[in-house]
């Protein structure tokens, strides 16, 4: 079995993520992973080999800061130029309802590979909605607490002390979600086309209809009536 389903250009495809969404996504991927591995140098004690990859502890600290600034830039670009998309994203998250709860309840079985019948989902399914809420919140906390830790002298001491544990909690939560997201968005067989949705921007129409029936109907239903079963 292939790790990721083959990209099929010969079947009807629909757009899932526009360029800006993909730019933000992969921009965060690169900067987050750089920040993560340079940050783990301090979070885990005694990983000198990890620090050595970045040229020692000072080097890791420098890479951490550069990547953090990069991440800030990605957030600003995504937030300013993709403002409309962010609003649509948030609107979809606010549709969290009964179908999403059923999805999340049944998901552990799906996660392990048991065949499960899921209720129709909007653009983002229950699990994706959870990820979309938790991860960006954690990243915002990471950025804010990070700048406080970087320039502690200009903030009140009490805030700096709060920033330390906030940074750690947000890092662990975000990394937990990123691990799950990375796996579910690629090698999990049930995820299917979702990788291509973020890599090339389009997904197979039949996949979209199966996995995100409500979204598909709302976004493409009228135009693609003939393709529905």
């Amino acid at each position: 079995m292939a790790l990721i389903p083959e990209y099929r250009a010969d079947v009807p495809r629909v757009e899932r993520f526009n360029f800006l969404a993909r730019f933000s996504h992969w921009g965060h991927t690169v900067t987050f992973l750089l920040c993560l591995f340079t940050g783990l140098v301090l979070f885990l004690d005694g990983v000198n080999w990890l620090a050595a990859i970045f040229g020692g502890y000072a080097g890791a600290g420098l890479v951490h800061r550069i990547a953090a600034v990069g991440m800030t830039i990605v957030i600003v670009i995504g937030g300013v130029f993709g403002f409309k998309g962010v609003i649509e994203w948030i609107k979809d998250l606010l549709r969290f309802g009964k179908n999403d709860i059923i999805f999340v309840m049944k998901f552990p079985l799906e996660f392990l590979g048991f065949p499960v019948k899921m209720p129709p989902q909007t653009r983002f399914n229950g699990g994706e909605k959870g990820n979309s809420m938790l991860t960006p919140t954690s990243v915002m906390l990471l950025v804010l607490s990070g700048y406080i830790m970087w320039f502690p002298a200009i903030f009140p001491g009490g805030l700096v002390r709060v920033a330390y544990w906030t940074h750690d909690i947000a890092m662990v939560l975000a990394t937990f979600m990123v691990c799950m997201h990375g796996y579910l968005g690629s090698f999990h067989p049930g995820s299917g086309e979702s990788f291509w949705g973020m890599w090339k921007g389009t997904v197979r129409a039949d996949w979209a209809q199966h996995h995100h029936a409500i979204w598909y109907e709302e976004a493409y239903g009228d135009k693609d009536q003939d393709k529905t079963e």
Partner: peptide
């Protein structure tokens, strides 16, 4: 999950 999904598939 990587293993069980493939076994169950």
């Amino acid at each position: 999950s990587f293993i069980t999904t493939r076994i169950l598939a």
